[in-house]
Design a protein around this nucleic acid. Structure first.
Lengths: 219, 219
DNA sequence: GTCTATATACTGATAGAC
DNA sequence: GTCTATCAGTATATAGAC
């Protein structure tokens, strides 16, 4: 179940065309230039509009950014929901979860970059006191999401299906690996769904081996 | 040998106390708040000075940032220089290189965060035409540095000591893993040199296994 | 070599027309 | 619901005193 972290629900950002268009444009701009270097005028211009349109929907730039963050996390929860409670051992469940996550990083790259930058902003304390509680909720949503992965590898280790030292370090290395397509992936002309799946499996295989998983996969 | 990427040499930033202090403060500020959110006043204030001091040494904020980037890369080349041309098979050489690099990411975290952000700025094209050539040179310096690692794992694969699919993807995953301490590491009170080495070896072990290296190391 | 103004530009946010 | 005009705050960079 995708928990509500903000004031809007899933179907709202899906059906409200105006707000959805703003979110898409904002995600793209924030990804291209980063939060501070992106002006509201930039986002408006990329929509072929002026900032009046944006300020009608969002009271501030920080709120717009936070809503992209929220939408990104909601997409993540929605993506893994069908594979969260599959039967079987932890290692197998982890593989499916990890693959789903990586594909998500590739498909919704712009939103996921905002999730990353938002997390960094929160951890750096680069937020005003009013924003702080909003960002804290978003950061907690992301922590809960990450905890699903962390728990699964902890269980796999207990099963004897993974071998690693510190759980905390292994967890960080796993997450940074699975998230890394947001930094290096860029679509190639004529790329198929299978091509993306192939890339994603290579990422999962790297992380699995890194975590000392029993059998390696080298597709 | 550490190639000169900018106009200053190693011994200059090491001996010129005034400029070195500015670089340290700038690296800290840029790491804490990011390039755009950091004002020259912030850097000056963290030095207990005013911006006159900084503008005497650097003509612009972008130049200051670029010099931190340059210093960071110079530190990296200097760090791996003693282990670049060791004898032995590629896998063994890679382990030593990788360990040295990870320790460097931990020890000089602030400078390495600037290297990361500078690279992103360059790739995003978030530079003015005048800055472009400076950043291009710095980015190329970083690419050459990364190529040392890429070449080594390619050789290890040819030796049959590593197993992975696409070299390009494996390279990205390796680099993001080895660099990742700049995102999640923070020093703990009473931490010893051995503690840091232990963390670094766990990172190297993860990457080695991820690359399908023959023997796993699980410290 | 460092500091104190100050010019200049940009941007987040608001008010009110349509 | 969107646009135009405008205000206020901030930040880069410069000029000139010390």
């Amino acid at each position: 179940m995708a928990p509500k972290v903000g004031e809007y629900r899933v179907d709202q950002y899906a059906t409200d065309g105006s707000r959805a268009a703003i979110l898409e444009a904002a995600a793209r701009c924030f990804t291209e230039r980063g939060y501070d270097a992106t002006s509201i005028d930039d986002v408006a211009r990329s929509l072929g509009a002026t900032k009046g349109r944006i300020y009608h929907h969002y009271p501030s730039k920080a709120d717009l950014f936070a809503d992209v963050f929220r939408a990104g996390m909601e997409m993540n929860y929605a993506a893994i929901e069908p594979v969260r409670d599959l039967p079987g051992k932890a290692l197998g469940r982890w593989r499916t979860l990890a693959f789903t996550h990586v594909v998500q990083m590739i498909r919704r790259r712009t939103f996921q970059r905002v999730v990353w930058e938002g997390t960094e902003m929160y951890l750096r304390g680069a937020t005003t006191p009013q924003q702080r509680s909003t960002f804290a909720a978003l950061h907690e949503s992301r922590s809960r999401y990450g905890a699903i992965f962390r728990q699964t590898i902890a269980e796999a280790k207990k099963d004897g299906d993974m071998r690693f030292g510190s759980l905390g370090i292994a967890n960080q290395l796993m997450l940074v690996t699975l998230n890394s397509p947001i930094f290096w992936y860029s679509p190639r002309p004529g790329e198929t769904r299978d091509d993306i799946d192939d890339i994603a499996w290579q990422v999962v295989a790297f992380a699995a081996s890194g975590l000392g998983a029993s059998e390696g996969e080298f597709r």
